[in-house]
Design a protein around this nucleic acid. Structure first.
Lengths: 197, 197, 197, 197
DNA sequence: TATGAATGAGAATTCATTCAT
DNA sequence: CATGAATGAATTCTCATTCAT
């Protein structure tokens, strides 16, 4: 049966795309290279993706899906907002940090044009930001976070710090673990969020 | 006259490039289009730039130069670290916010590829981060900022928030002024930086 | 049932091909589209036709077969050459005019290339022309048509007029009936054929 | 100066296209082959033609232009309608017959799709038919041609006979001169056109 | 017979860059 | 310095055809 090869083939193409694109950049990566690495014919790519750009979008969807799903799941485990914030920070840095190639896609290649970023941010990034925002709101309701803070702004600020850490980690090719920054990030953000005394 | 038209011509090409690249993206922008908008022949571009990529680099240099120069100048005017932080925030958001096309270049197009970002971050972004870092260090020395904070980390966090605000402003095509976020950004960062009580 | 579905399937494929090719042209029509319209799998096409070109040839054969068969049958009904000429004209225009899609195939798509036309004209068109030629010969023998006319030439001239009417009808998308031209065509040709006085 | 090479280059490309397309058919002819025969780079083709199809259209325009121009010029030389008819017939067959490759383009390749024929017939073929029609009208006014004939119909009939002779000449690869048919064509058409007695 | 996923050769077109004027 | 016609390498995508099931 084609049972297993079907799903596998699309995945295989995406995996190949991550490696190729991470190494040479989206524009230098030819569809032929991706096909070759995936072990399929060039034309086969087009059975699974409308065009080259669709591959990149799919890569984003797959990655962002994990952020959102695992983000949601992680939040359910704790009830305190600061604890949730810590979990999100750790999860974000862990997910980005566990696959450098994928991280290059997410932090760099996926942002290569306004047109592209537009589509991304509208959909899933917006959802991710709103998850963060909900944690902020919840923390404010319980008095754990400063009430006067705009939660939408706060979510973006939090995301900005996380995103910068991720990008910085990619660019500095040192062999550090990205998660190791989680403590510092939490301390900094928590200081900015907690009620002043 | 011949003398100045030279300098003018390079500037004209760069200005044309900003508009074209902001509107269609770097890869969709042809050298011919830039030449046309600049009012020069295609070949003339190559008298001023080694190749297409060089144009983009020059755009970055020109923009980053202002950040660094005006950043430095601005810092000299005040002596308190929090005040300096506020100035940097305002300057950053003002400079990004005053020209949407240029901002698209800075926030989006310039981040094309790892190869590209590498070159950027090594040089001037590193310098910009170090300016921010120096403010943090100074604040810590004077007891205005929390001493236990790693100033290099803090600089990145600050930059991350500013950068996210800038990118968000570009993507949300609302007609707001980016500088209007300066107050909120300062409050948030200041809370995260000041000594806990 | 299996037996007849076989024949049906080939017919179904040919019918689908007529519609698709008439609407998009031979080269823009993919085998996949024909298969889809015919309700069969892509591969099934190749059980009935050696390749895509064969479909077109088959379409021609089927159409030309009717011209020849019905032409012959029609000629047997009358004995006077002018009457036979009239019948041929009417039959030709009626057959072309009764199915616009099929007519597009016959008048346009089938004339794709020299290679293609060669094969067509050698075989069946030659036979059709010879049927017309025989009518001319017969008319000359009975003194109904001018004797000095080369019957091969006359057949081509007759065919040329009919063919031009057919093509013109296709291109002018007016909602006229092609057969309505039969009278005028006959009058014109008859004048050219009958003995001068 | 590029003075002479400009016009020449476009002509050279068109000449190369005639040969290549006549020999292999439009679809089997690659732009690269045309470029090679024309002695230019592939890309150069696109400085003179928007795309491959445009080359074919240009070929048609150039050819049809001669038919119309020389047709018009030829008609001015004589005043009798039958004489004009004879001139048109001779000119048509001479022009088609003087360049077999070009004739293949005109009689076969240019007709390969409805879309294509539409564009052709609308414009210049219509004009050519109307030139023929005017001769018919003039002949009718002077009593040289049968008055009851619809001149639009007659023009198409005349064209149909000429066109069939041309196509037939191409397909029969015999080494005859197409113009040699002019007499027979004229006799046949003249018999169909002249007032009955 | 019938299927349809997979193949991979093939071609049009673009565009950064050069260089003769 | 300036031009812009010419170059030709490079790449995406299509689609007729095959073949394992």
């Amino acid at each position: 049966m084609a049972r297993s090869s079907d799903g596998n083939k699309k995945e295989r193409i995406m995996d190949a795309a991550v490696v190729e694109i991470a190494h040479r950049g989206y524009h230098q990566t030819t569809v032929a290279r991706i096909a070759k690495r995936a072990g399929v014919a060039d034309g086969t790519i087009y059975l699974y993706f409308k065009n080259k750009e669709e591959i990149l979008f799919s890569l984003f969807d797959r990655a962002m899906g994990r952020f959102i799903d695992e983000g949601r799941a992680s939040l359910e485990k704790s009830s305190e907002a600061p604890e949730k914030l810590r979990r999100i920070i750790e999860l974000h840095l862990t997910l980005v940090g566990e696959d450098r190639d994928q991280a290059i896609i997410t932090q760099v290649e996926l942002r290569h044009s306004l047109h592209f970023m537009d589509q991304l941010s509208r959909a899933q990034v917006g959802e991710y930001l709103s998850i963060i925002g909900q944690v902020v709101v919840q923390g404010q309701q319980k008095g754990e976070f400063r009430a006067e803070l705009d939660p939408v702004f706060a979510a973006k600020a939090i995301f900005g710090v996380l995103d910068e850490m991720a990008t910085d980690w990619i660019l500095s090719r040192r062999n550090t673990r990205l998660e190791s920054k989680a403590g510092a990030v939490f301390d900094f953000l928590w200081a900015g969020l907690k009620p002043s005394c």
